[in-house]
């Protein structure tokens, strides 16, 4: 076996070529505007799975247009890897626009429902904490209460930590949705006025 080095005498050893995705990972928030058609969520999640992009949260819902849905996707990765996420999403025919809003001024909220243990003796304390976090009690039972809270992930984490002391029986979080502040918006250029319904 002859493993000779084929590189002819470079002046000095060059640094190794940068491998995409090997940089510092951070949390990115992507907004994807997609056709509101059956199967589109599956296309997006299938692509993320197949390309090993790790979704931290994904929220999807209607927009002001009935034929268009909007997904808010949070992923962790270096900037190059996350750019790959949006480029790969663009390959989907049903994806109309992808924008990384990580660096933008924005409102970023999620909603949580938290069922906490609440006895007669702890109830008032729970109510106080919830009010402090601008949440509300939406259901009250003999030994439990459902707390509804909206806010940033950090705010909800903090509330969860506080009410956690009483005992959480059940919790569900929607994942964040975002909107740019001011007149900026995630807009799709050249979107036709009306669209027909899709079959698939």
């Amino acid at each position: 076996m002859s493993n000779q080095n084929l590189s002819p005498t470079p002046a000095s050893d060059p640094p190794p070529r940068h491998v995409p995705g090997s940089g510092e990972a951070r949390r990115h928030v992507l907004v994807a505007v997609v056709n509101n058609r059956p199967g589109v969520l599956n296309r997006v999640s299938s692509l993320m799975r197949a390309r090993q992009f790790n979704i931290e949260s994904l929220a999807v819902g209607h927009t002001e247009r009935p034929d268009v849905s909007r997904m808010t996707i949070t992923v962790r990765g270096d900037d190059v890897a996350v750019e790959q996420v949006s480029k790969q999403l663009y390959r989907l025919i049903d994806v109309l626009k992808v924008q990384d809003v990580t660096g933008e001024r924005r409102i970023e909220h999620e909603l949580a429902l938290i069922k906490v243990r609440a006895t007669a003796s702890t109830r008032s304390e729970i109510v106080k904490i919830v009010e402090l976090y601008r949440g509300r009690i939406v259901d009250l039972g003999a030994d439990s209460a459902i707390v509804e809270a909206t806010g940033t992930e950090d705010e909800i984490d903090a509330l969860v930590a506080l009410v956690g002391g009483f005992g959480i029986k059940e919790m569900v979080r929607t994942g964040i949705v975002v909107m740019l502040r001011g007149s900026a918006a995630v807009e799709v250029e050249g979107l036709a006025e009306a669209k027909t319904e899709e079959v698939s």
Binding site: H18, Q84, K87
Partner: peptide
Amino acid sequence: KVSTYAPGAKIVHVDIDPGEIGKNVA
């Protein structure tokens, strides 16, 4: 191995699919 690929070269990459650019090699 990408880290030892064409160590002295800059790369101009032309492709119609933006998803191919920066995918395997910076």
